[in-house]
Amino acid sequence: MNREYDYTYAVARVRANELSLLSAADIEQLIVAGDYKTTMHKLSDSGWGEIKDIYDYAGYLENYFAKTWNFLVEIMGDIHELDLLLIKNDMQNLKAALKSIVSQHDAKDLYVQSTVYDTQEILKAVEERSFKDLPDFMQKPAEEAYEVLTATANGQLADAIIDKATLERIKYLGVKSGSPVLAELAERMCATANIKTALRCANTGKSKDFVERSLCECDTIAKHKLVETSLEGVDAVLNYLNDTSYAVAGEKFKESTSVFEKWCDDILMECVNEARYTAFGIDPIVAYYVARDAEIKTVRIILSAKINNLPADVIRERVRALYV
């Protein structure tokens, strides 16, 4: 069934809101705005919201993200179509909850606000070790990560298990959505995450078991090849990437880590760029989310660089591709 007319109202509201996305000129103005405080005030003046604690830029940006997500909830009606964009927050909270019960430290500050599932229910299930009360796809990784944490205290492996489950869920939701843009976005999210993990594992000499438990299956990169090459070293991974559609990843990685990280984000923007010319369907809404996400990442980089007194050129090198 053709559902493109379902989003006519939502797309019109998104188009109207796209006017408030930061342009390249706005970003440049923020970069040259002066010190950290001035930049924060500039953001506040341009509609990013009231500043409660000027030094808590992470909280400020999280509130702005929540505002964006609430807008999508308001216009979409059934927001579950976009679950794959937010599910990483639920999994982040699951990770924090698991570590919190094992280490017996309160992880209240680590929980992310905007989630698909009720965070309190996830926390309750984890606190009571009642993993069967979690959503189906969380049960097995939560149990596995909990066992790893209690038996070996290997936080890295526990994180890797949850991250892999996150990517598998993203991939599943992308395919299930029936939207080519969401499916492509999910595929690219999984592929770039796999590349990052494989390179990190190659750099730190992780075992085969660790790499296998960290990488997810995806269509554009063969998992077994990434596992094999990551055991041989970074060059082997980069050589393998030359044979895939992600050959440019190698060049970016050799340039610098920040250039590579920027590329990983920019290829997500690339796959929604066409939505600028699409009048119907879910694509413009997905594109708006990706655009806001990239904008928030860029602003985070600017603020973090300013608080650490880094020069403007260092910031410019890291600015993400914009939608407008």
Partner: peptide, 9 residues
């Protein structure tokens, strides 16, 4: 529908 979306903003 589209017009209502634009006017609401």
């Amino acid at each position: 529908e589209a017009a209502a979306g634009v006017v609401s903003e």
